[in-house]
Design a protein around this nucleic acid. Structure first.
Lengths: 345, 345
DNA sequence: GTGAAAGCGCTAACAG
DNA sequence: CTGTTAGCGCTTTCAC
């Protein structure tokens, strides 16, 4: 009862040619007589034939699938990344295999292992940790097997991989500088994980600005976060309840910004009046709500595109490059009002 | 220079057995002597062997990949769906191929066509339109080829597919009823697309409550939206600026709720005071911001899990069911304050 | 320009 | 328990 997909033999038979000829016309390859081409195309249409990509992959020993590994699908940042990657991938006929690691190193291990079974053509990954030895080994082994790996946003201690990152430090530096120049002197920061490039770099941007303008950085103004809402919320709340609270907070990622806003709202503070805030990464929802939160941001979808772009470059290139290419996108400072030094401060 | 993946022959040779034996131990299948098993395992470890799933798929003519087709990756609703699907998929060793249709019927066509090349094991899809004949034909052809299809949230005019939906109508009914019982008499709605099940059903819930309690429904209180922020924003603004504005609005999905909130905020209205609102689908961000928006919601991640679950059921079942199974999840009404009939109304 | 045939790496009878 | 062998559907020499 249930239909079968036609295969190349049936097409050959229907068209009265050999399977080689069918293969040729399907691949727009070497010259085929107009007559044969037509007969094949007719058969294809008649039998509604679609070549089996699995067989093709096996035969050519290379697939048209790429693996994309994200630590948290639910974070809008990664949704946007995914959007960018899939867009370019589809344009070029590549399939996207999605893997979610839930920020767990163990899960990342499992995912990477399972990826090896599928002879992927390339990999885009935001590693859970920048210091997981196992992940590094796994990824390196992909690279050794000529499966290009591009790191996204987070990096690893190995120059062999391509990577797309942003000017985090500089962006944050400019943000904090603008706070200082706006009159703030008590500026706190809620950092990201200090084991990650982004965490370190964003913190460094803060430090640099503060040092350059000789603004004191009391220990209690430096709060270590983990890029998660809950932790940021607690730290922000603690900050605001300090005897000498900061007049401004820099929050190191989108979730951290949410945490700050939650704390601010719960304490009944007015943003840009009682407390100022600049966050890293823009948040669509806040703009829709007219929140006017100032941010350091980058074109996230474009980051995804670039990552896929680097992969495509690798595919084109015959010899794998010795050293990975590091693509750095700009970070933009967008001031919307939440950075203002309030009248009441 | 670049390493090769070992194949089954190399393992067989290294272990001094035949490839059949290697295959057997890799598949935990029929009895193999402890001695052989050990020798194979040693070889596997030594050569770091991972079976090639492409070859396996070709040989068994069935893959371990499922396709998930969403209309908008960037919408948190679908991020959560994806989360649910991938979670269960990974648990059962299935790969997830991600396809984004960007709410475009044309793109959906392309995607579906490209999916046929990959002999997928099953498909989870939220179709762009419930009336696209082409999509229906394509999906039916998958089903005919024993590739189960489960529809998610949106439906199609063919009972043959499995589907997971929610009690949208009833949920909305209860929401609107609670508005009425709270004292509202001027209740507007911003609907979803009326070609979709969810759009129709949610509107029907509104109507039912209004009719049952004999609350008048002036034409200008019924606004047709498209589940998008922009449109909802405009409609909400228009509603609020009516000579006789509604005291409450029901918004038919998460983006619509954002649109309403944007309008409300721009007009300087106070939620739950000057205007009340209940939305369909919960929005994490709003809760973090202490927005207290009341909603009709469902466990979205669970919807994704169920969809994958239905797929797994189909895989287990030998004979494809005649009629699809329709899984209906409950919708819950969560009142947080934004539904209150304000003192000033 | 076209066909025959040898793989790609693995599974699954079928004999032993 | 284990090896031999015939596919799975397609690509790709290599002759003709």
């Amino acid at each position: 009862m249930s239909k079968q997909e036609a295969n190349i033999y049936e097409i050959a038979k229907e068209a009265g040619v050999s399977i080689a000829t069918v293969s040729r016309v399907m691949n727009h390859s070497t010259s085929v007589s107009e007559k044969s081409r037509k007969r094949v195309m007719d058969a294809v249409k008649l039998l509604n034939y679609v070549p089996n990509s699995t067989a093709r992959s096996l035969s050519t020993s290379q697939s048209m699938s790429i693996g994309v590994v994200v630590p948290d699908i639910d974070n809008p940042f990664f949704s946007k990344i995914l959007q960018g990657v899939t867009l370019l991938a589809e344009e070029h006929g590549y399939q996207v295999l999605l893997y979610n690691t839930d920020e767990s190193v163990e899960k990342e291990q499992k995912v990477l292992r399972s990826m090896r079974e599928h002879r992927l053509r390339g990999i885009v990954i935001t590693p859970v940790s920048e210091h997981s030895k196992e992940t590094l080994v796994q990824l390196r082994s992909f690279a050794e097997r000529s499966i290009p790996v591009v790191l996204l946003d987070r990096e690893l201690d190995d120059p062999c991989f391509d990577r797309v990152v942003t000017e985090d430090e500089d962006g944050v530096y400019r943000a904090v500088r603008s706070l200082i120049q706006g009159g703030h002197r008590r500026i706190a920061v809620i950092t990201g994980p200090q084991q990650s490039r982004t965490g370190k770099e964003r913190f460094r941007g803060y430090e640099r600005a503060m040092e350059e303008f000789r603004v004191p950085m009391p220990r209690e103004y430096i709060r270590y976060g983990d890029y998660r809402m809950q932790c940021a919320y607690e730290e922000a709340k603690a900050l605001c309840q300090l005897p000498q609270p900061p007049t401004a907070i820099f929050s190191s990622n989108n979730m951290t910004t949410y945490g700050c806003l939650k704390a601010i709202s719960e304490l009944g503070l007015r943003l840009g009046e009682d407390i100022s805030l600049i966050g890293f990464d823009d948040i669509d929802a806040l703009n829709w709500l007219n929140y006017n939160v100032s941010v350091v941001c980058r074109d996230v979808k474009e980051m995804g595109r670039r990552a896929m772009g680097l992969l495509l470059d690798c595919f084109d290139r015959e010899t794998p490059a010795e050293e990975g290419h590091r693509e750095v996108l700009p970070a933009e400072l967008i001031l919307r009002g939440s950075e203002r030094y309030g009248h009441d401060l």
